[in-house]
Design a protein around this nucleic acid. Sequence first.
DNA 1: TATAAATAGGATAATTTTATCCGAAATAAA
DNA 2: TTTATTTCGGATAAAATTATCCTATTTATA
Lengths: 144, 144
Amino acid sequence: MFSKACEYGIKASIFIAINSRDGRRVSPKEIAKEIDSPQAFTAKILQDLVRANIINSVKGAYGGFEIDKKDISNIKLSQIVNAIDGDKIYNGCGLGLHTCDEEHPCPVHDKFKIVRSELKNMLENTNLEQLALDIQSGASFLKM
Amino acid sequence: MFSKACEYGIKASIFIAINSRDGRRVSPKEIAKEIDSPQAFTAKILQDLVRANIINSVKGAYGGFEIDKKDISNIKLSQIVNAIDGDKIYNGCGLGLHTCDEEHPCPVHDKFKIVRSELKNMLENTNLEQLALDIQSGASFLKM
DNA sequence: TATAAATAGGATAATTTTATCCGAAATAAA
DNA sequence: TTTATTTCGGATAAAATTATCCTATTTATA
Ligand code: FES
Ligand code: FES
């Protein structure tokens, strides 16, 4: 469904959000440990998220990755997925036709678009704060 | 969403179904042309579908691929997806945790499982005959 | 039986995705 | 200003997916 890069990006963002709520910056090393991902690869994805203005980075001693507290509840899962995997999952044809076009639909178009828009809604209606709270309350987990 | 192999497998199966309804066997060459896919790679996928007992192959002169007419309406998309991409899409965790477990859910589990089961229902309730008829009536298309 | 036509399957190559490594640049604190 | 720490970014490697090629095997027909 999502690429590995995207899975790591989502989990990393949640972990950063949790820590930023407490005013703590985190390093790729800590993040990779907490989300059980390859460190250097995770660092690359963090760079992408910084470039997409979803998270902030602070270089140098006492630096690390963080998210503005006031932004946490405004960052939607869809933004992260979009930054890493692009919009193919929302707009692309499920059977790989060049474009998903109502006028020239593939065999599964009518049924597929329903599932796809369900997914889109889900991603657009889920923000980092909700996800961070669930982790903090022990209702959900970032690894294993 | 689906692998390229799976996209080709679905489209190939539909094309075979259309032709089998008319008692015609088709070759990888014809199939690849009609679904706009790489021929040799498509042939490999056809072999997988044969091994999974979803389509039949007849070797030698006047051979080709076909589907028993009476089976066409009983073959569900889910069988094809399962044969090629496995069941990760139905049963796997959306964020890549080792197992999707209600007792140890990832942050998106509750919302993701709804979308996933929607997709599963869609694939289980769509059979090759419906899809073949839509192509034949010009309501949908296999390429471009 | 010989021949032509067709799938089966192994070997290999190209591409994309995933992952690692290392030095450069930036920054806070001593 | 020096040092330690940390992200940035380029180069490279490994693994998985996608794609190609060639030969073997099977089979209907002449
Ligand atoms: S054309 Fe294939 S999903 Fe819309
Ligand atoms: S645990 Fe992640 S989808 Fe169920």
